[in-house]
């Protein structure tokens, strides 16, 4: 498997995701945002961080960079695209995913371990997880409060386009287990073809037993087959 991690000025989880991918034998290249061509790859990752300092709106400026038009083309043609945290924000700003990521409901940056429940594993990213499995992942963001209109929300729910939702340790999905106010506790969404995934939690941060759990690894393993 070949992967490309796009590096924007201000990206800061690019190294972390590269390490997780390389651990699973992905042949990974780091692609600088000023490049105009994408290397041939099976997976394109938009990493977390503060591209362009989160200035104007998180992800807005990265969405205008050279390489992004290539990413958009590839995504529309069916390439696997994963946006984590700031990467999710960029996917929304460039129109590959619908909705908006608003300021956290608590109005503060949140960085902590949280739980998500696998709602749907019938897709390329979550097939190595059990359905309803509870995962411990880490979040770190200021704008992760997912919002969308009623029609789109129904579309997401009806078509299995919400792979993970925030929950508590026992897997209960309620307002107490919602860290940022996301509508319906949404932690990540797909596009209609399920080849483009945006998620706020960081799976790469849960890829090393010594640090915490390895709950993030099956996501990358799912992509291998």
């Amino acid at each position: 498997m070949k992967s490309s991690v796009i590096v924007f000025p201000g990206s800061n989880c690019d190294r972390d995701i590269a390490i997780a991918l390389e651990k699973l034998q992905f042949k990974n290249s780091m692609v600088w945002h000023k490049e105009t061509e994408l290397p041939k790859s099976d997976l394109i990752v938009l990493p977390g961080g503060f591209s362009y300092g989160d200035y104007l709106r998180s992800g807005a400026i990265a969405a205008k960079s050279n390489i992004l038009s290539e990413v958009v083309d590839a995504g529309k043609k069916g390439a696997l695209v994963l946006g984590i945290c700031n990467g999710f924000q960029i996917l929304i700003e460039c129109g590959l995913l619908k909705g908006a990521l608003l300021r956290n409901s608590g109005l503060k940056f949140i960085s902590k371990d949280i739980f998500v429940k696998v709602i749907s594993n019938k897709n390329k990213f979550f097939n190595k997880y059990q359905s309803e499995e509870v995962l411990k992942l880490n979040i770190a963001h200021n704008e992760g409060n997912y919002f969308t209109n009623k029609e789109h929300l129904k579309e997401l729910e009806d078509n299995d386009l919400i792979p993970i939702k925030y929950c508590n340790e026992k897997g209960e999905i309620d307002s107490n287990s919602n860290p940022n106010g996301s509508i319906n506790n949404i932690a990540g969404i797909f596009n209609n073809n399920k080849n483009i995934l945006g998620m706020m939690p960081h799976p790469e941060r849960m890829s090393d037993k010594l640090l915490s759990s390895e709950d993030g690894l099956p996501l990358f393993l799912s992509l291998i087959n």
Binding site: G53, Y55, L56, I61, K64
Partner: peptide
């Protein structure tokens, strides 16, 4: 104004 600086640079770039 760090934000203004980045926005202005991006507008020029596009």
């Amino acid at each position: 104004d760090p934000q203004g600086k980045v926005v202005s640079q991006t507008l020029k770039n596009i």
